[in-house]
Design a protein around this nucleic acid. Structure first.
Lengths: 201, 201
DNA sequence: CTATACGGAATGAAAATTCATTCCGTCAAA
DNA sequence: TTTGACGGAATGAATTTTCATTCCGTATAG
């Protein structure tokens, strides 16, 4: 039960090198083997801490999973929309979003993998799921703007967002490392072509 | 150890109502909770068989996972490329492939989910992984043809295939049920636009 | 000296796997 | 047609193994 060590945990800071090490180790393990396939002893060993130490920072395995989820989604949200320029042109905004997504994918492949793998995981609590909206919301807005201006296809924006995201992930997973920026840009063109209003031939 | 009951298992037919029930139950459970999150007792209960019965058909949990993977990938391969018409036009072939993919997604959402979720799962053996090629191969061929004819963008076909597949999955996961065929077709247009050589404006 | 962080063996619960037993259909003998 | 021996499919309690969590001794900072 988590309630017992709530006080102990509150005493520890939200940051701290051990906490960070545990999160990083858990990220690696859970991307490779999934939540249920990851054991606490494994995480402890990979993090270079004792098993008991994990429980000083996280109430239980589920709390660790949720903390990691928020960590990753938060980083993604920041990278994608943090200080996003208020460009007037929808195409320019799309390009910037695409660029930021791929920069994140290159810098944090494990986080990207975790976000993908644990999209709808059963161990996530309500707060974790709510974070999703902070990422999807601005995307919907961008796409809706484009539709209003008549430059984007009149598809459900949620579906368009899902398609673009899926394309980005597909490219970043398949593309050889390190990323060839031409390839990434070309893929961005593909994604734009997918959602843009088709030009009359 | 698996070798011990190899003979017993070989004695059982590759098909059979119980084996089928076990596979179906495992499919449902593993799509919902993942491989490691699924327990043998759960599978047995859902399949309406005794726990021991599972081990008459599958050497161990890993073998069950691999059998299920092959089952799903095989069904996907058949649905996608089985008796595929030798159309001359690349666009026509693409449309047919898109149609078949979405028909499969509609008919077997769990299998689609399983294929997606367990793409690169760690418990898969070499043979299971090799099956992937039976699905990707023809797709690469189709895309390469299109490039030779100059109707498709000169991107790495593997990456294009991954993008198209990702778009299809995204649409089929997000789209409300039952599928609106107009929406599916519109999404197919998006996918084609993504890979087609852009027309000069 | 006290308090807090840490580590890792110990614990108990839950899971995978085994296996002795039951159950059922087949078939040859009477 | 009945009977009973036989083979193997099915079962689930028992066993083994794994794993999350706890507990307590040690180390360290204040």
């Amino acid at each position: 039960m988590a309630s017992e060590n709530a006080i102990r945990i509150a005493a520890s800071a939200e940051t701290g090198p051990k906490r960070q090490a545990i999160l990083e180790a858990a990220l690696l393990q859970m991307v490779e083997r999934g939540f249920h396939g990851t054991t606490m002893p494994d995480v402890a060993r990979a993090a270079g801490v004792g098993i008991g130490t994990i429980y000083r920072y996280f109430a239980d395995k589920e709390a660790l999973g949720n903390a990691l989820f928020r960590h990753c989604k938060g980083a993604l949200g920041d990278a994608l929309w943090g200080g996003f320029p208020a460009l007037p042109d929808v195409k320019a905004r799309f390009d910037e979003a695409w660029r930021r997504m791929t920069v994140f994918a290159a810098a944090q492949p494990l986080m990207l993998g975790f976000c993908e793998l644990h999209h709808h995981a059963s161990y996530l609590d309500a707060e974790s799921l709510a974070i999703e909206q902070r990422i999807v919301g601005p995307a919907i807005e961008l796409l809706s703007d484009g539709q209003r201006q008549g430059v984007l296809r009149p598809l459900d924006p949620e579906i368009m967002a899902a398609m673009v995201w899926a394309m980005m992930v597909a490219v970043c997973v398949e593309a050889p490392r390190p990323f060839d920026s031409d390839l990434i840009a070309a893929a961005g063109d593909c994604a734009w072509a997918a959602i843009a209003m088709p030009s009359r031939t």
